[in-house]
């Protein structure tokens, strides 16, 4: 009996790891001409799933500093130059406001389902 419980626990752990790694997507959001862009188009919002990652990639010839002070997810990626990128995993459902500290007109909302 104990052996079955042990195998079942292993299976649950494996399923949990599998679901959070294999099915989590990564979205690339570029900082381009002082806007947030996805697939070359300006965006002000994006909807992703819990556990997904956004890779913030700087394509401008100057520094950006992406951050969020939202209660759901607070982060400060620091300043990074053209060509560099940094990632954030959004692990809770809700809405997160993302801005650039240097260029405050850069703003987008991330909805996590």
């Amino acid at each position: 009996m104990n052996r079955y419980v042990y195998i079942l626990s292993l299976f649950i752990c494996w399923a949990a790891v599998f679901s959070s790694t294999v099915y989590a997507d990564e979205f690339i959001v570029a900082q381009n001409n002082k806007t947030f862009k996805k697939d070359g188009k300006k965006i002000e919002s994006i909807t992703i799933k819990k556990g997904d990652t956004i890779r913030f990639k700087n394509e401008d010839p100057f520094f950006h500093n992406i951050f969020s002070l939202s209660d759901l997810k607070t982060f400060d990626l620091g300043s990074f130059p053209k060509g560099q990128s940094k990632t954030v995993v959004f692990d809770k459902a809700g809405t997160v406001e993302v801005e650039c500290a240097i260029h405050p007109e850069m703003y987008m909302e991330v909805t996590i389902e």
């Binding site: 951050f67 400060d76 500290a101 240097i102 405050p104």
Partner: peptide, 27 residues
């Protein structure tokens, strides 16, 4: 102007500036 916010390294660094509005280190 880039309408942005920068610490330009003035001698008197006592004013918190934009940091009072947005609590992000670079500000």
């Amino acid at each position: 102007t880039d309408n942005g916010f920068h610490n330009i390294g003035l001698k008197d660094a006592s004013d918190a500036g934009r940091y009072a509005i947005r609590k992000v280190k670079i500000l």
